[in-house]
């Protein structure tokens, strides 16, 4: 007679569930440490200004940039520039992501499409963003459309490339196991390959969003009247180095905040993943 053996529970060692939540002290410490480098840069910046290596017209002092910010604030153009740029990035990124995911799925899951489409796309990828600007102006004028298109183009490639390579690199063993449990073709694609690709896709989306912000500046070279890229060009045209530095700082801050938002989504979606 087969005897039932009690199952030892000792192996069930306790493993922390999810990400460890940070205490307030730890959080403050992290924020403090993250600020060290920016503050040091600020100090070096001030020092270089004091030493007079560059003229004020070339390198404004931090306080000049602060004043430029105040000036912008007083003229009510502070939020509108951020808002306009943000909207462009969101729209461009949205279009770019949708097209990249659709095309990435077709190319990743269907080898005929890969041979047909992928080489051409890879060639397009090497074209620098600014090279498109004159053509886009010719084709679409200088309204919102060419700007959105350019940003979409910028967001497209990291998403597409990561998705395709993610599909390509799904663990063969996992696929084999899935096949052993009856997953075939469509079910295999939708229920195994796609979820397994999600980490790559999220990485692609984050890179794509960063790229969207990069392309924003190029896009706002196309006859903009508002936006952070416009502010930059405006500073360039009117010789306002303080405005140039201000726009760069604003671009960095807003870009980082967007990335942070997406990182939260990523953490939420990929709680199962080791890689986040």
């Amino acid at each position: 007679m087969i005897q039932r053996w009690s199952i030892p529970a000792t192996e069930n060692r306790s493993i922390s569930i999810g990400r460890p939540s940070l205490g307030l002290g730890e959080l403050l410490k992290r924020i403090g440490l993250a600020l060290v480098v920016p503050l040091a840069l600020l100090g070096i910046w001030q020092l270089v200004v004091e030493l007079g290596i560059y003229s004020r017209g070339q390198l404004p002092a931090p306080v000049d940039v602060w004043r430029a910010g105040e000036q912008l604030w007083r003229s009510d153009r502070f939020w509108i520039n951020i808002q306009v740029s943000f909207e462009r990035v969101v729209r461009g990124f949205g279009y770019g992501a949708v097209i990249a995911i659709a095309l990435g799925l077709v190319v990743g899951l269907w080898s005929v499409a890969r041979t047909l489409i992928d080489p051409a796309l890879q060639a397009f990828r090497t074209i620098p963003s600014l090279a498109w600007v004159p053509l886009f102006i010719l084709w679409m004028g200088i309204g919102e459309q060419p700007k959105i298109m350019l940003i979409a183009l910028g967001a497209f490639f990291p998403i597409y490339t990561n998705l395709v390579s993610g599909i390509e690199h799904v663990d063969r063993k996992l696929i084999e196991a899935a096949q052993a449990y009856g997953y075939q073709r469509h079910t295999l694609a939708w229920h195994v390959i796609l979820p397994a690709t999600l980490p790559s896709l999220m990485t692609g989306l984050r890179l794509g969003l960063a790229q969207a912000w990069l392309f924003l500046v190029a896009a706002e070279l196309i006859g903009a009247s508002r936006g952070l890229g416009f502010l930059l060009v405006d500073g360039q045209n009117s010789g306002r180095a303080d405005v140039i530095v201000l726009s760069i700082i604003l671009l960095a801050v807003v870009g980082k905040l967007c990335d942070f938002g997406l990182a939260l989504v990523q953490n939420r979606l990929l709680r199962w993943s080791d890689a986040t």
Partner: peptide, 9 residues
């Protein structure tokens, strides 16, 4: 396998 992802910058 999760760590084998390639990042294309």
């Amino acid at each position: 396998f999760m760590n084998r992802r390639r990042f294309t910058l």
